[in-house]
């Protein structure tokens, strides 16, 4: 886990994230009255850095906050948004709760499985997409059926819109921007939506 070797020839800083981002880490910990509270924030950082939380991240976080690895694992595994295994670059999470489910969500899941060629829970071979379904309502029922990609919203995702989203991401579109456009996140489009379900 030692920090060996700084910037490599290609200009990328290859040091572990916790070395590169020490200042962020310190700031995060300082926000709380007790350092332990920074645990979830550090897990988020690890996940932002490599897409999932690796064993060495658990070890680092435990060490840094003076906790046992078991404690960190116990906390991490409680929350469904942390991944402990590698996932695709885009993690698609379809809302599987009632409103989305009744308003086309079930069809959407089948459509995505078909288009991506994977089952729910799997990652496409090119490593681009992981398809998941959540039991939690994602608080977008007025835009049912809804899904999130890396926690960015997409509403009223009918099969055609789903295809456009996938294509745009394959073409390298910016996820947050895409969410604001195709995703129909602008108010009026979602709340007080005129479109019928």
């Amino acid at each position: 886990m030692a920090a060996i070797g700084a910037a490599a020839a290609d200009g990328r800083d290859r040091r572990p994230w916790w070395v590169r981002r020490e200042a962020d880490i310190e700031r995060l910990i300082a926000r709380y009255p007790k350092p332990k509270s920074a645990l979830m924030g550090l897990l988020w950082m690890a996940q932002e850095e490599r897409g999932y939380v690796a064993d060495e991240d658990v070890a680092f976080i435990a060490e840094r906050l003076g906790l046992s690895r078991g404690y960190v694992e116990s906390t991490c595994s409680f929350y469904s948004l942390y991944h402990r295994q590698p996932v695709g670059r885009y993690v698609i999470v379809v809302c599987g709760n009632i409103v989305c489910g009744l308003c086309g969500g079930a069809d959407l899941i089948r459509h995505l499985e078909e288009r991506l060629g994977v089952r729910v829970g799997e990652t496409t071979k090119d490593g681009l997409f992981t398809l998941l379904v959540t039991n939690e309502c994602v608080a977008a029922c007025d835009g049912a059926p809804a899904l999130q990609i890396n926690e960015e919203y997409f509403h009223k995702v009918n099969p055609q819109r789903a295809d456009r989203i996938l294509q745009a991401l394959r073409d390298g579109a910016d996820l947050a921007e895409l969410s604001e456009t195709i995703g129909l996140t602008a108010p009026g489009a979602v709340w007080e939506a005129g479109e019928s379900a």
């Binding site: 658990v58 046992s68 690895r69 078991g70 404690y71 960190v72 694992e73 409680f78």
Partner: peptide, 15 residues
């Protein structure tokens, strides 16, 4: 520690 949650909760250790 306790890992996971709900009916999937189990007694375990860090991976």
């Amino acid at each position: 520690v306790v890992g996971q949650r709900a009916h999937e909760a189990l007694i375990t250790t860090a991976d």
